[in-house]
Amino acid sequence: MYETLEILRDGGVTTIWMNRPDVHNAFNEQLIAELTAACQALDADDAVRVVVLAGRGKSFSAGADLNWMRRAADASVEANLADARKLAGMLRSLAEMNKPTIARVHGAALGGGMGLASACDICVAGEGAVFATSEVRFGIIPSAISPYVIRAIGARQAGRYFQTAERISAARARELGLAHEVVATDALDAKVAEIVTALLQGGPRSQGAAKALIRAVADQPVSDALVEDTACRIATLRATPEAREGLGAFLDKRPASWVAGG
């Protein structure tokens, strides 16, 4: 189905491999369109529990394809706006999936590549990974990725890195809150598998609701409206079959139905 992606399924876990290794998985129109379509299709598939995003070759993603950028420089404002909307839509499709998402990052994660890592719920980086918001060096700004990068590292740190375009080591990415885990590159798959195992213990509906909860609550003042919203969310979930099954499984000392062997 896809020319720039390889989709591998293993039970409830699906890995999206960006597969343009000759250009370090740089974005072009096709990769953006295919990644959008893949995220939407997997989000609609109840058999998919966890989505892992990874890159073939030496890099996770080096950001925008230079040939694509060159074409954009010669295009009209209207054409550039259409392209920018597609990129922004792809990032949102990834960020707002109802499933847990994990970025498996090795090598370069630059520009849009750092945006992808930030848009995923969890980022696991190899110790040799390098991140950057490098856009200002090309005379542009990290606009489409900014909601996700700022959410990951905060406005204060973004104020530095959006302007300096400094390279960020894996260790520094962990300090900033961008990377949750940093491991030896040859241990990446084992660490991702460990986190996947933990994710598969949770109820699918509750995990999607947890993601929506974070989007609703983050950076909001504790107002009467927010308190009421959080009360409504938990009350609604408590009445679901998934919640009843989860509580029953705990009381019966057995795995819940969504856990392998449950």
Results as ranks from 00 to 15, higher is better:
Ala38Trp: 15
Glu96Ser: 07
Thr164Met: 01
Gly12Lys: 11
Arg70Cys: 05
Ala129Asn: 00
Phe138Ile: 02
Ala73Asp: 04
Gln207Trp: 14
Ala152Tyr: 00
His180Trp: 01
Thr133Gln: 02
Arg104Val: 01
Gln220Pro: 02
Arg49Ala: 04
Leu213Arg: 14
Lys211Asn: 07
Gly248Thr: 14
Leu81Ile: 13
Met69His: 11
Arg215His: 11
Leu53Val: 12
Arg205Tyr: 10
Gly126Glu: 06
Thr197Asn: 08
Gly113Asp: 06
Ala117Met: 10
Gln30Phe: 04
Gln220Glu: 13
Leu91Tyr: 07
Ala37Met: 09
Asn67Lys: 11
Ser76Ile: 09
Thr133Pro: 04
Gly203Gln: 03
Gln30Arg: 12
Gly128Lys: 12
Lys253Ile: 06
Val124Thr: 03
Ala170His: 01
Leu81Val: 14
Leu213Ala: 14
Asp224Arg: 13
Ala44Asp: 15
Ser223Ala: 01
Leu247Ala: 15
Leu110Ile: 15
Thr14Tyr: 05
Val217Met: 15
Glu96Asp: 08
Ala152Trp: 00
Met90Trp: 00
Gly262Thr: 11
Gly89Cys: 03
Ser146Ala: 12
Ala103Arg: 13
His180Leu: 00
Gly159Val: 01
Thr101Ile: 13
Met18Leu: 14
Leu110Tyr: 11
Gly57Met: 10
Lys253Met: 09
Leu42Tyr: 11
Gln30Met: 08
Ala231Tyr: 03
Met97Cys: 06
Val51Glu: 04
Asn67Thr: 12
Val136Cys: 06
Tyr161Val: 08
Cys120Lys: 07
Gly126Tyr: 03
Val130Leu: 09
Arg156Phe: 03
Ala38Tyr: 15
Gly126Leu: 06
Lys86Arg: 13
Glu78Ser: 12
Glu29Phe: 05
Ala235Glu: 07
Trp17Gln: 13
Ala119Ile: 09
Ala158Tyr: 13
Val51Lys: 02
Ala243Tyr: 03
Ala125Leu: 10
Asp65Cys: 03
Gly107Glu: 01
Arg20His: 14
Ser93Glu: 06
Val105Pro: 06
Trp17His: 15
Phe27Arg: 05
Ile168Asp: 01
Glu245Ala: 13
Val13Cys: 04
Met18Asp: 10
Ala88Val: 01
Gln157Cys: 03
Leu247Phe: 15
Gly202Glu: 01
Ala256Gln: 04
Gly261Phe: 09
Gly202Arg: 02
Gly128Ala: 12
Lys99Pro: 09
Ile102Tyr: 05
Ala33Glu: 12
Cys232Glu: 15
Asp189His: 08
Val192Ala: 02
Glu194Leu: 11
Gly111Arg: 00
Ile16Phe: 08
Ser118Asn: 05
Gln207Glu: 14
Arg70Ala: 11
Glu166Leu: 09
Ala158Arg: 13
Ala88Thr: 02
Ala125Asp: 04
Asp219Phe: 01
Ile153Arg: 01
Ala218Asp: 05
Ile195Thr: 03
Ala144Cys: 07
Arg9Lys: 11
Met90Ala: 02
Gly261Asp: 07
Val183Trp: 06
Ile168Arg: 07
Arg244Asn: 05
Ile195Leu: 12
Arg56Lys: 12
Trp17Met: 14
Arg238Tyr: 02
Leu213Glu: 13
